[in-house]
Write a protein that binds this DNA or RNA. Structure first.
Lengths: 249, 249
DNA sequence: AAAATAAATGCAGGTTTTTGCAATATTTAA
DNA sequence: TTAAATATTGCAAAAACCTGCATTTATTTT
C-alpha cells in the first residue's frame, strides 16, 4: 500500500468518525505503528487532522468540543426567554427557579411589565431588581454556592404558603419515560414545591437536554403545562411531547 | 476512548448542566475516578471549568459580579472595612445591614475566614456568595429597589428568631444627643431588630456622618458597642464618643 | 538498464504519557 | 464526634512516543 493511499484512507476515516486510533489503523493496513505515527504527524502539520496521544481527531472536533464562547447556547436561551415572556402579563405572581435560562428570561423582561417575581436565585434576583417596575420577593434561606440559589426548609415552606399564577422552571433533563430529572437533591425539592404551588407550570430548556436523563426525579411530564425550547413547535423532536398533551412553544 | 474525547465530553456536560460529579463521569465513561480527577484538574488549570470537591462547575455560571464602582469615599470605606474585619473570627454568626460600607466589608473578607453571614442586602449577598468558605443566609422578603435590601415583616421576624454573635450596621447619621438616626422607615425597623438580636453591635460610618442627624430614630448611642470610622481612635472628633463609653476603632 | 540517490519503512533502545491502584490525608455529612 | 466519600501522593505497568539506524522501496540520473 502506497503512502499516499494510506494517508487518503486515514483522512477518510478521520472525517467519517471524527477520530482514529493508531493501533487499529496499524492492523487495518498492516503497517507498523511507527509508520502510522509518521503519517499522522505529517497530516497534522498541514492541519488536515489533530494528532493526539493514541491517535488523531478531526480538525472540526476542537471547535465542537471546546467552543470558544458559549454564544451559541446563549442565543438559544434568548429565543426561549422571548417565548416565555409572552406568557407573562401585568399583575401576575411569577415563581422562577434558578439556572442560566431563567437569568436570560430575567434580562429580557420588557420595561413596561409590572408583575411580582418570586425567586431564591441570587443572579435572577439581581436582574429583577434592576427592572423599574417589577416587584421582587426573595425566598430566604441558606445559599447553595453551587447553584446560587437559596435552599432549605425555610425556602420550601415559603413556597408552600403561596400560590403563583405561573412558574418558570429551568430544567436539566426531560424525557417522556422518566419525566423531568435533575442532579441536585435540594434543587429538586424546591422545584417540586414550586410545581405544587403554581397554577401553571412552564419548563424551559435548550433542545440539547430534550430526551436526556439525570439521576433525581422531579416530576412526570404530565405535571407540566408548557414546554419551551429554541426549536419551533412543529419540530420532529417535540412531536412526542405534543402527543403527550403538553403545549409546546 | 481518547483522553481528548473524554475531556470534551466532560466539558459538554459541564456546560450543559452547570455541574458534574466525578463518580458519575467515571461510570459513564468507564474509567477510574482518578483519571476523571486528573482530567478535571487539567481542565480547571486552563479555566475551562471550576473544580470542586466531588466534581466540577461551569465557570460561566460562577462569575456574577455586582457592578458597583464609583462608590463615594471608597478609600475611607476600605479602611473602615479592614478595621471591622479584625472583629470577626472563625465560626461566628454575623448579621449585616445594607449600604456600601458593608459591601466593602464583604469584599475585603480574608479568604481563610469561615463564618456564617446573615443579610438581606442583595449586593452584600452576592459578595458573600463568591467567598469560598463563608456560609450565607439570606433574609427573604420583598426587595426595596432603593436600598437593594429585603424589607418587611418576614425579614423582621427572621431576625427576631436568631441570635448573632456580632452585627455590623452601616449607619447614616450619629450624634451623641439623638443617637443613631436614619431616613428610611423600613430600614430602621430592620436595624432595630438586628441590634436586639445581636450580642455585640458594631456601627460603621465615614467620619462625615459623625455628629449629623436624620429624621428617624434608630437607637441611642449607648446601645452600640463599637464605632468604626476611617479616623484613628484618638482623633478629637471621636473623643466624645469614647467618653460616652463606646469603643472606638 | 544499471547505478546512484532519495524516500519510506521497520526495529531496537530509551523516554514520556497515561492509567489504575494502594496508602494516607482531607473534606463532607450525619 | 465518627463514618463515608473524596483527594492526594507515590508507584508501577502498559501503551505510546521518539531517535537513530539499517533495510527496503521508489525515483532519478547516467
Amino acid at each position: 500500500m502506497l503512502k499516499r493511499e494510506r494517508q487518503a484512507y486515514i483522512l477518510r476515516q478521520v472525517n467519517l468518525h471524527n477520530k482514529v486510533l493508531s493501533n487499529s489503523l496499524s492492523t487495518e493496513m498492516d503497517v507498523s505503528e511507527d509508520t502510522i505515527r509518521r503519517d499522522l504527524h505529517e497530516l497534522s502539520e498541514t492541519g488536515k487532522l489533530i494528532k493526539v496521544h493514541g491517535g488523531a481527531l478531526s480538525p472540526s472536533f476542537n471547535k465542537i468540543a471546546f467552543p470558544l464562547n458559549n454564544v451559541y447556547a446563549q442565543t438559544n436561551k434568548r429565543i426561549i426567554a422571548q417565548k416565555a415572556i409572552s406568557l407573562i402579563s401585568d399583575g401576575m405572581f411569577v415563581l422562577t427557579s434558578g439556572g442560566t435560562t431563567i437569568i436570560e428570561l430575567a434580562r429580557a423582561l420588557p420595561q413596561a411589565l409590572s408583575a411580582t417575581f418570586i425567586s431564591g436565585s441570587i443572579p435572577a434576583i439581581v436582574e429583577y431588581m434592576n427592572h423599574p417596575t417589577i416587584d421582587v420577593i426573595v425566598l430566604g434561606d441558606k445559599v447553595s454556592k453551587v447553584s446560587k440559589i437559596t435552599i432549605g426548609a425555610d425556602a420550601l415552606s415559603r413556597i408552600k404558603n403561596l400560590k403563583a399564577d405561573i412558574c418558570f422552571l429551568g430544567i436539566n433533563a426531560i424525557d417522556l419515560e422518566h419525566g423531568i430529572t435533575d442532579n441536585d437533591w435540594d434543587v429538586v425539592q424546591l422545584k417540586q414545591q414550586m410545581i405544587a404551588s403554581s397554577q401553571k407550570v412552564v419548563c424551559l430548556t435548550i433542545s440539547e437536554k430534550i430526551n436526556s436523563m439525570q439521576p433525581i426525579h422531579v416530576c412526570a411530564v404530565n405535571k407540566i403545562d408548557i414546554l419551551i425550547t429554541e426549536l419551533p413547535a412543529d419540530d420532529p423532536v417535540m412531536m412526542p411531547y405534543v402527543a403527550a398533551g403538553i403545549t409546546v412553544l
